[in-house]
Amino acid sequence: MDETDREILKILQDDIPLVSRPFLEVAKKFEISEEEVIRRIKKMMSEGIVRRFSASIRHRKLGITANPLVAWKVPERRVEEVGEKLASFEEVTHCYERAIIPGKWEYNVYTMIHGYDRDDVKKTAEKLSDAIGIKDYELLYSSKEFKKTYKRYG
């Protein structure tokens, strides 16, 4: 990544210009060609620096109000397999292994699932539980969103 890559990310992380050729606008700003902007973004994508080019949605406004974090207690030797399996479900948007605090908090795999009501997500959680054969899990429903922003790059 060089300075130009970083500048491109800084501009395009928030709002893409809503015009037919958005990368041309960015190109003009840096006095490089549209092709070069595209090439640079594609390269950052292949390196995993850019994950996607997409919109993020305030799903609560659309009625998707049941958004539990599900914490699973998975035996260490099964974490890889279970993590991959959980990740394969469309309903799962995030899936991570996290550190445990022995004796105090031993849930080690976390998934976010989303639904229109609690019945909806309860069923999803049961389906996931059956698929991985793990009964020890907690549905941590969010009752209030106090903050949701993101860390800006740059």
Binding site: M1, L9, L12, Q13, D14, D15, I16, L18, V19, I41, E47, G48, I49, V50, R51, R52, F53, S54, A55, S56, I57, R58, K61, L62, Y150, K151, Y153
Partner: peptide
């Protein structure tokens, strides 16, 4: 474009652009 702009104004679209992997650019979380 005009519909997307309205969805942004209504706050349904939070942001629309490149999603960055924060860890790949060095962030810790």
């Amino acid at each position: 474009f005009s519909r997307v702009k309205k969805l942004i104004e209504k706050g349904i679209i939070r942001k629309f652009g490149l999603r960055i992997d924060s860890r790949k650019v060095g962030f810790a979380s």
